[in-house]
C-alpha cells in the first residue's frame, strides 16, 4: 500500500511546489505576496459566482400572493408535489391570513405587511385556503385555490 502511494505522494508534492512557484515566485516582497493572494481569492470567487447563483436558484420557489379585502391575487396557484415552496402573503390593506386546513399550512400577516411560510406539498389535489383573519363582510368568501400536481 505504502509502496504504491509513495510515488503518488511524491508527485503531489512536486505539483504543490510547482503551483507555489507560479503563485509566489522567489524574491517577491511580503506585500506583493499578499496582493497576489488577494487577486487569487478574487479570481476564485468570480469563478464561483455562477455556481452560487445556481445554488440560490435551486432554493425553494417563492410565490407572492397579495391579500386585499376580499380577494387574493392571484386567486389560484399551481405547485408541484414534492417541490419546496415559500408562500408569501402580502396585505394591501387590513390584517389577513390564509389557512389550508387539510395541509396544515397557515400564514397570517398584519396591516400592510408581508409574512411567509415554507412547506413542501406532499399530496396532489386541489385545496381551498380560506382567509384566516377576520377582515369584514366578505371574509368568508375570500379564498385561495391551490392546485398541487404530480
Amino acid at each position: 500500500m505504502n509502496l504504491i502511494s509513495r510515488p503518488t505522494d511524491r508527485g503531489r508534492q512536486a505539483r504543490v511546489i510547482k503551483i507555489e512557484r507560479i503563485l509566489y515566485p522567489k524574491g517577491l516582497s511580503m506585500e506583493a505576496k499578499a496582493a497576489m493572494k488577494l487577486i487569487c481569492t478574487g479570481i476564485l470567487f468570480s469563478t464561483l459566482l455562477p455556481v452560487l447563483t445556481a445554488i440560490a436558484q435551486a432554493a425553494p420557489r417563492r410565490i407572492e400572493v397579495t391579500a386585499k379585502r376580499f380577494e387574493f391575487s392571484p386567486s389560484e396557484i399551481t405547485l408541484k408535489r414534492g417541490e419546496p415552496v415559500v408562500l408569501i402573503i402580502k396585505s394591501a390593506d387590513v390584517p389577513h391570513g390564509v389557512r389550508f386546513r387539510e395541509l396544515g399550512v397557515e400564514v397570517r400577516t398584519g396591516r400592510g405587511e408581508a409574512s411567509e411560510a415554507a412547506f413542501t406539498p406532499a399530496k396532489a389535489g386541489t385545496f381551498v385556503g380560506q382567509c384566516s383573519v377576520f377582515c369584514g363582510a366578505g371574509h368568508g368568501k375570500m379564498k385561495l385555490i391551490l392546485h398541487i400536481v404530480d
Binding site: R101, Q130, C131, F134, G136, A137, G138, H139, G140, K141, K143
Partner: peptide, 11 residues
C-alpha cells in the same frame, strides 16, 4: 345570517 361573512369551516 353570516353566510359569506364567515367561511363554511368557521361556521
Amino acid at each position: 345570517g353570516s353566510k359569506g361573512m364567515l367561511s363554511k369551516d368557521e361556521i
